[in-house]
């Protein structure tokens, strides 16, 4: 088979695969839009202001409530006052056997 034909088939295969992904994304987005009405109901009823994106700091759990204006406050994207924060890794959570096992399921 000609090399150019192989390349053409490869490009066509990739484009068809992307089209199939596009079709599945349409289905998944429709599902989310249906669910988002219920999510909006939870937000309105409980008067929530933030998504539970990451709860390792107050300013990541509630970015909209971060005290951007006041001195020595932390907020998303802030430049750290002390360099230690950039080089301090998270603690080893593996000792939390049970909790981490649940997460691994």
């Amino acid at each position: 088979m000609r090399k150019s034909l192989v390349f053409g088939l490869f490009v066509l295969g990739c484009v068809l695969f992307l089209a199939a992904l596009g079709a599945t994304s349409h289905v998944r987005v429709s599902h989310f839009l249906a669910v988002s009405r219920d999510l909006g109901d939870i937000t309105a009823t409980l008067k929530l202001t933030d998504i539970s994106f990451s709860d390792d700091a107050r300013y990541t759990r509630n970015p909209s409530q971060a005290d951007i204006f006041s001195a020595f406050q932390d907020y998303p994207g802030s430049i750290e006052h002390f360099p230690s924060g950039s080089v301090t890794p998270p603690p080893d959570f593996t000792s939390l056997g049970a909790a981490m096992k649940v997460r691994g399921q």
Binding site: S36, G40, Q65, D67, S70, A71
Partner: peptide, 22 residues
């Protein structure tokens, strides 16, 4: 997702500040 979910948030939140903290 955040924009869709947070459409139902309260229009205004009033917090009290004291000495630079909530």
């Amino acid at each position: 997702e955040a924009l869709l979910i947070l459409k139902g948030s309260p229009e205004l939140i009033v917090q009290r500040m004291s000495a630079g903290r909530q």
